[in-house]
Amino acid sequence: MSDHAAAVEITRLVKKFGDFTAVGGINLSIKQGEIFGILGPNGAGKTTTINMILGLLTPTSGTILINGMEMRRHGANVKSLLGLMTQETVVEGDLTARQNLRIFADLYHVPKDEVDSRIELALQEADLVDFADKQAGTFSGGMQRRLELVKSMIQQPKILVLDEPTTGLDVQNRSGMWTRIKELNRNGVTVILTTQYLEEADVLCDRIAIIDHGSIKAIGTPTELKRIVGKGRILELIAEDPAKAPAIAALLKSHFRLAAEVKGDRITTVIEENRIDILTSITGALDRKKLDVASVSLHLPTLDDVFIKLTGAGMRDTASNDAVSARSNIFRGMSGRR
C-alpha cells in the first residue's frame, strides 16, 4: 500500500460471459490523483471493467491492483478505498438524508465516534443541512444527486468511480457536479469516470482511454487523442441568414479552395495547421460580399471526431449535442453566479 503504486493497475484483464468476451486483455494504469476517463460505445466493456475494479465481478483472468493490493486477498481494505457513483440516483426515498448517510457510514465500517461528524460534514457539503431529517424522496433531482455524491464519499475513498455521473442532470446541477468532481480531485481523490458526453470527458479528464469491443483503442490526454484525427483545425461559421449559407460555402470553395459542409445555417470546414492566417482573409472576403455571419470559431477536432475514427461509430448524436450546448450554458451559468 505504497503511495508510489498506481491507483489502479490493470494487467491482461479478461472477462468472459460464456462464449462472449466482454473484456479481452486490457492493460491500464491509472495514476494517483488523476481524473481518468473511460469512453466507449454501449457494450464496449466499460461497465464490465468498472465492475471488476469494484469487485462486483470476478475477472476470468488477469489482475487488478488497487493501490498495490488485490481485491481477492485484501477485499475489505480495498473496498474501503473505493467509492462509486452511478448514473442512477441511489438514495432510499423513504429514508431521510441523515438515515441514508448513516446506513452507508455503518456499512463502510466508519469508526463509531466519527460517524456523526462525517454525516454533519456530508450534509454541509451537499448543502442539505436544512433538509437532513426530511425524506429523500421529497427532494428535487439535484438535491438527491448531491446527497448521492456525499453518500458515496462517506467512507472518504481514495479512488472514486463515477459511472456516467451527469446523465439526466439539468445544466446547473451538471456544472455543479463538475465543480464537485474537480474539487474532490484537488483534494487528492483519484477519479475514474465513464461518460457518454465526450465534451464532459474533454473538460474534466486528465487522460482518457477509448475502449471498444473489450480492448483499448487509445489512451492519452484529450489533446493527444485529438491529434490522432489530424493536424488541422475545424473552422465553423454560422450564417446570419440561413439562406445565405450555401453562398458562404461557395465562396470558401472558390476563393480559398476549402471544401465546406453546410448543415442549416452552419458551415464547417477543415483548415490545415499552417494556414491559420487564412482566417482574416476569409472574414474580409465575407465582409466585402455582404455575407454576414453570426459566429466564427476555430477549434481543434473534438473527441467526437476521435471517437468516430477509432470506433467507427459515433456516440449518440443527441448526447453529444446536448453536451455541447450544456457546456456553453454552464460557462454562462458559472460566470453569472460569481
Binding site: L54, G55, L56, G75, A76, N77, K79, S80, L82, L84, T86, E88, V90, E92, F104, L107, Y108, H109, S152, Q155
Partner: peptide, 13 residues
C-alpha cells in the same frame, strides 16, 4: 433495479 444492491455489494460487508 434501483442500484441499492450494487451500492451494498461494493461496501466491505
Amino acid at each position: 433495479q434501483m442500484g441499492n444492491l450494487k451500492a451494498f455489494l461494493i461496501t466491505p460487508i
